[in-house]
């Protein structure tokens, strides 16, 4: 029997292409999955796929992450359904329209809500439960966009960068409780979210991203770039001094 047969996984934003591909890897090992997402029909389509692929059991809950109380309720439901969790993966998010955000504070704040505040709303109850359990792993998909603020995408970058810092602190706190916190930073992945972007050689398939994420979680990596080659690319980008960086058109 595969080693992860009884792994209990909560995935928020489960209908995203990257999350669904990660879930497929867990399903192939017979894991038990609790999927949360906004659209009930899409959620059910993903759940059925995972059942056929061998998931031990798949449950779903409709969740709009901007609804704080519902976030608490879903964490509670997932935790009690499986009698605890081994992995919680937060994969929800939207790529906001930067131009729209620049024109409207409301649009900017909404983007920060979905990409940052909502994650905090989920991470707070999750962290407390994992901390008392003294084991398990919290994994969160942020983005390479959080490594540096760029004019073309800094609202998204700010939300993801803020999340990175939050996770850094959480990792430090939960380390002492034996709980891993994994920050996952995808680069360009070929998904509906990036359908509007022109594809280049740096684009990875959602399938590859899903496999890499699964591996990074299983190995309890602290910060993983998805795929790995973004680590050196972002190291170079981060090392550019601000006096130079501000002049670039990125």
């Amino acid at each position: 029997m595969p080693p992860e047969t009884s792994t209990r996984v909560l995935i928020v934003g489960a209908t995203s292409a990257i999350a669904a591909e990660t879930a497929r890897v867990y399903a192939a090992y017979g894991a038990r999955l609790f999927l949360a997402g906004r659209n009930p029909q899409r959620l059910e389509a993903v759940a059925a796929d995972l059942r056929v692929r061998g998931a031990g059991s798949v449950l779903t809950a409709v969740l709009d992450v901007t609804d704080r109380q519902r976030c608490d309720a879903v964490v509670e439901e997932a935790w009690s359904t499986f009698g605890g969790l081994d992995v919680a993966l937060l994969a929800h998010g939207v790529l906001p329209d930067q131009a729209r955000c620049q024109a409207s504070a409301a649009a900017t704040i909404e983007a920060l809500e979905v990409n940052f505040t909502s994650a905090v709303a989920l991470l707070t109850p999750l962290a407390n439960r994992f901390e008392s359990a003294g084991r398990g792993c919290i994994a969160v998909i942020t983005s390479v966009a959080g490594d540096r603020g760029r004019q073309s995408n800094y609202v998204y970058g700010a939300a993801k960068g803020g999340l990175d810092r939050f996770l850094e602190g959480l990792r430090n706190r939960l380390f002492h409780a034996g709980v891993a916190v994994v920050t996952l930073k995808p680069g360009f992945v070929d998904t509906p979210m990036t359908a509007g972007l022109t594809q280049g050689p740096l684009f990875a398939s959602a399938r590859r991203a899903g496999r890499d994420i699964h591996r990074s979680i299983e190995r309890r990596r602290d910060v993983a770039y998805i795929p790995w080659f973004w680590r050196p690319i972002m190291a170079i980008l981060r090392s550019l001094p601000e006096t130079v960086f501000k002049r670039l058109r990125l």
Binding site: A17, A45, V46, A48, D49, V52, R53, P192
Partner: peptide
Amino acid sequence: RRLDRLIAFDQERGLLQC
């Protein structure tokens, strides 16, 4: 190509819906 989900598999009768 993203319409790539399996829907049901009846392992007794060998019926696959996808």
